[in-house]
């Protein structure tokens, strides 16, 4: 089971989960979901190559020189090339940001879906595991089947929103993890089992204490009933009483001296 300490993935500007929540699954989209970025890189490189080809091999350079421009054509060419490069890098950075901040988290209480739709649009939806009614996955098409990624659909009860988690890797695994977590949340969890166990222990100790008391009473009917387990406490009490008596006697002495 995938467990990560909460402190490690705590957001810089506050957390979206509670303190005692435990993360069971932390998934980002499949790498293939970044295909627009790959396509953009391919297109940009193709455009730059075509541009160089046009400029140096098809005589576009000579044509621009014949126009008697104030600025040399070489400068214009390199300016456009550098602008294209910077735009390409910026686009890649933006795509990576959208990919990286798009996260699905399954905790032992909730399913949280964080979607970074664009630079200034972010959506966070969370639902309690207890309100989940149905979880299913859908793998469609050649790429999804071969690379094993797809959509996970979560149907919830009541007013809670339904979830559509797109491009998740290993969708069947994600479904099994969510359904297991939901089942654990619905059935008595380990925590409640632990509480029950502690209660049983307490009752057992109580019974032992009562039995001990009864035994002591039967063995020494004249003596004070002192359970074995409380002997230490009794000794401490006796010591305390002795100290109090000593203090009283000294007080009497002092009082006597004063009265005398």
């Amino acid at each position: 089971m995938f467990k990560k300490p909460i402190q490690l993935i705590k957001g810089k500007y506050g957390t979206i989960w509670e303190k005692d929540e435990q993360i069971l699954l932390f998934v980002r989209r499949h790498w293939f979901a970044l295909w627009p970025a790959y396509l953009a890189v391919f297109l940009m490189v193709a455009i730059i190559i075509i541009f160089i080809f046009l400029f140096y091999f098809l005589g576009f350079n000579q044509f621009l020189s014949s126009l008697d421009l104030v600025v040399s054509p070489g400068r214009i060419f390199w300016l456009i090339v550098f602008m294209l490069f910077l735009s390409l890098i910026l686009f890649l950075y933006l795509s990576w940001m959208e990919y990286y901040l798009d996260i699905t988290i399954v905790t032992n209480r909730r399913v949280i879906d964080i979607e970074q739709l664009n630079l200034f649009r972010r959506k966070i939806v969370a639902t309690e595991l207890i309100s989940i009614q149905d979880v299913r996955s859908e793998v469609r098409g050649f790429f999804q089947s071969t690379l094993d990624f797809g959509t996970v659909l979560i149907q919830t009860a009541g007013e809670s929103p339904n979830f559509t988690l797109r491009d998740l890797p290993n969708p069947s695994k994600v479904v099994s993890r969510i359904s297991t977590a939901a089942a654990e949340d619905f059935n008595p969890s380990q925590e409640s089992k632990q509480i029950k166990h502690n209660e049983e222990d307490l009752k057992k100790h109580e019974n032992e204490f009562v039995e001990e008391l009864a035994e002591n009473k039967n063995n020494n009917p004249d003596e004070k009933i002192v359970p074995k387990t409380n002997k230490k406490n009794l000794r401490q009490n006796q010591d305390h009483k002795k100290q109090q008596q000593a203090a009283k006697s000294t007080n009497h002495k002092h009082k006597g001296e004063i009265n005398f």
Partner: peptide
């Protein structure tokens, strides 16, 4: 023209970096 382009480029880059710093997790 180039400096104007660089200013626009830098503003967009700044916002992307800010989003990443704001919503990124510790240890990311």
């Amino acid at each position: 023209i180039y400096f104007l382009f660089l200013i626009v480029w830098f503003i967009i880059s700044y916002f992307v970096a800010k989003q990443l710093m704001m919503y990124g997790f510790v240890g990311d």
